[in-house]
């Protein structure tokens, strides 16, 4: 303790920690702080980049965006996609974690199953998109299996019918994302003290009660931070949607990120795109406050 004090007395050494964190701080300022300020500035101008002398227009880009019917529907699609993804990620992740934690499995069998169950998470969104496009092709294997099983009559155009496409896309994302929950929840399950279950057993609590009163409270912080983080990331989804449907057919799977991308690189409306990107950023920031809080309380 004394030694620490004498080290800190030296003025030069007070700067030491800052030298260690300097490279990261510099990079993150250049790559995060400045770009965010930039995109905020763009969003308040009339068209930057294409217009040589852009002028300040206040919030008019935001008003244009919020009034745009396509943007409104994109917000709706994003919410649908995100809410159902998060709910089913949690349900599937929990189910798989509980199954893997089952006492009926030998450890070797469990290890093999765990690998298989994690696989969907290892694939790049671009690859997931084309694999599912092939499976869900009108002439593809999914329609064949469902027809044989008598679940559907005739051919369903999963990804080109406006009625099914958003659900289908959400399903693909659920398939892709649940392992992330599964891994964390499994780790959580394995860290529940065994004595608690034994005590509950002596008190005569059945497995449903044990799950409700021991497992869930123990996993609650993990579930909370997983769901918040997943909500933020899913809300920002781009590659999976872009590669599977491109936001179509029509605008039926347009999400906020594909809408912003199209404004930027198809319509060259950089300022409007910046406003739209700022809206996504603001929503993310508001939710991330909850995330940072949930991290701090742990």
């Amino acid at each position: 303790m004394l030694k620490k004090k004498s080290i800190l007395k030296n003025k030069k050494q007070i700067l030491d920690p800052y030298w260690f964190i300097l490279p990261a701080m510099l990079l993150l300022s250049i790559l995060m702080l400045i770009p965010i300020i930039q995109v905020f500035r763009y969003s308040l101008m009339d068209n930057v980049i294409t217009n040589k002398t852009p002028t300040f227009v206040g919030l008019s880009n935001y008003i244009d965006i919020i009034k745009d019917e396509v943007f409104k529907s994109a917000v709706g699609h994003t919410l649908y996609f995100t809410i159902f993804s998060v709910i089913f990620h949690l349900i599937l992740g929990m189910t798989f974690a509980l199954l893997l934690n089952s006492k009926y499995l030998s450890s070797g069998f469990r290890a093999v199953l765990r690998v298989i169950f994690i696989f969907p998470w290892l694939f790049t969104p671009a690859i997931i998109a084309i694999v599912w496009r092939l499976i869900l092709d009108p002439l593809g294997i999914m329609n064949y299996i469902l027809q044989q099983a008598g679940i559907i009559n005739g051919i369903v155009e999963w990804l080109s019918n406006e009625k099914t496409v958003l659900q289908t896309l959400t399903f693909i994302n659920i398939w892709n994302g649940y392992p992330f929950y599964m891994v964390s929840l499994l780790a959580g399950l394995q860290s529940v003290p065994k004595q608690q279950y034994e005590a509950a057993l002596i008190d005569g609590a059945n497995s449903t009660k044990q799950f409700r009163y021991i497992t869930i409270p123990h996993l609650k912080p993990i579930i909370l931070s997983l769901s918040i983080l997943d909500f933020i990331w899913t809300m920002q989804v781009f590659p999976l949607v872009w590669m599977t449907t491109g936001g179509g057919p029509g605008h039926s799977t347009e999400v906020m990120a594909t809408y912003t991308y199209k404004l930027t690189f198809l319509q060259f409306e950089f300022s409007k795109a910046s406003a739209s990107a700022m809206i996504i950023l603001l929503i993310s920031m508001i939710i991330s406050i909850f995330y940072v809080r949930s991290q701090k309380s742990r």
Partner: peptide, 30 residues
Amino acid sequence: YDFKGKKIINMVIIGTQTVPPIALMIPYFG
């Protein structure tokens, strides 16, 4: 080390994980 601003910097770093790439895309391009 313990140093001034450590807590805030730490929180900012946690927060940056949630910045949407699509918001960075436009300034990055420029």
